[in-house]
Write a protein that binds this DNA or RNA. Structure first.
Lengths: 249, 249
DNA sequence: CGTCTTTTTGACCATTTTCAATCAGTGTGG
DNA sequence: CCACACTGATTGAAAATGGTCAAAAAGACG
């Protein structure tokens, strides 16, 4: 729960996400509502825990900057990453709907998150049906992504899963402005990738090295360079993503 | 897409689900809205395909009676079951939100589904914010279930996954009135269980037999008898479910 | 009954895990 | 600036969980 309120909160009117292509623009009344709804900004360091499994939170957040993971930790110490959270993604909705988080949210990079009072969520549905609709859209898209991950774990080989993960991360990072080209910062360890795809870190490394030998990618330190996206896509298989401009709060 | 309109559609006012414990009751205006929103009823046979992956559907459905599976079929013929759909569950929302289904929905038993026009969904958000909220609730719960499955596939052994699945099915079937006691009809083949938990049918069978030898359950034909729920729970591990009374449309 | 699907079992195989060690990169304090 | 510590990456060898193949048994259905 490390973090502090920021000195100069971003104004919704000049929200950097709204300028990005692929993000649905707001109407004036929506903008006014969200500006009012937003109660603050949370800034956390890399590695910080934003939300804790099993706990309640009075807030919902929208990622403004940075990457996070949503993950589940088991008693035996193993962990399963459920998905990443990128800018524009909502985190903590579970807490508002079910009174308690069912997973933990951890920052992979320094992050800034818009803070909303859970209590105000109801007003959103009442006053801004379009934003209510958007919230459902975001929740359903999240389900879609998790289901796609499930398909990988259930039916595909380690090689396919790894290729899928690379393409998935690239696609999402690109869409959220965190990757400008085929070479980009990836604040994800090989262990993280292993924990996402249900593999051991050792085997993940072996497969990655093999893909590297085949000239598909190059991963050094926290930088990845995708040298053959089409090749990776072929291995990865189907990668559905909603076409429409995505909403966000 | 087999199915036909039913002779005598169920009236929302006398919806059997509303009488079930654990289902959130409607207010009068909500009831009136949904009665109007409901445009028909779809009755299908066991094995019928309700919604097809990759296709668009002008409808959203609420399961009124019966079980379905939501699944993804791969090019190589393998399939991954994403989740079951029980009475009260919404299916086809993806089609309304993303213009196309990202999975197939198949009936496991004869089913009846309430039909809603996708075009009317927007009115629901506008006129009945509470129901809009409920729709988000349902979508988020679905994500929660899929994430729980993901954790099983990623981190747990075959034995644990099978025990988890049995308990999960029991819990959901009980809550939706499809299981009255520890012994109930289970219209799920061992292959289905395998396809849900990312295992082979052969290994699934071996594990099930082992659990049977240990006196935890008995599964003959399409009937399952849970003889030691606590034992299964111990193996299954954490089984989160939202406590609050669930909404439905 | 005869056919089809599903379940069951045994034998063998292999993808992936676990274990063990080394190496590389990064950060810290003296 | 260097020794030390720590985390993450890399590699090889051994072990194992779970998969594939094959075939028979048991239901289900017309």
């Amino acid at each position: 729960m490390a973090g502090r309120t920021r000195r100069s909160p971003t104004l919704c009117g000049s929200c950097p996400l709204r300028k990005m292509p692929g993000y649905r623009p707001f109407s004036d009344t929506e903008l006014a509502f969200v500006s009012e709804f937003k109660s603050g900004e949370l800034e956390v360091q890399a590695g910080a825990t934003v939300l804790v499994d099993g706990h309640d939170s009075p807030h919902v957040f929208t990622v403004l900057e940075g990457w996070a993971v949503r993950l589940k930790e088991l008693e035996d110490g193993s962990r399963q990453i459920i998905n990443f959270a990128f800018p524009g993604d909502l985190v903590g909705l579970q807490s508002s709907l079910f009174d308690q988080m069912q997973h933990t949210v951890e920052a992979l990079t320094p992050m800034r998150l818009c803070v909303f009072e859970r209590a105000g969520l109801w007003n959103l549905y009442r006053d801004q049906p379009g934003l209510g609709f958007d919230t459902t859209w975001l929740a359903a898209r999240e389900e879609l992504f998790v289901a796609q991950h499930l398909v990988q774990l259930g039916q595909r080989t380690a090689r396919e899963r790894i290729a899928y993960t690379i393409v998935y991360i690239f696609m999402r990072a690109k869409a959220s402005g965190l990757a400008k080209s085929f070479e980009f910062d990836i604040p994800v360890t090989q262990k993280d990738m292993a924990d996402l795809m249900g593999l051991s870190a050792v085997h993940t490394n072996k497969v990655l090295k093999q893909l590297e030998r085949e000239g598909l990618l190059k991963w050094s330190r926290s930088m990845i360079n995708i040298t053959d996206l089409e090749g990776l896509r072929d291995i990865a298989g189907e990668m559905a993503e909603p076409a429409a401009a995505r909403p966000f709060l």
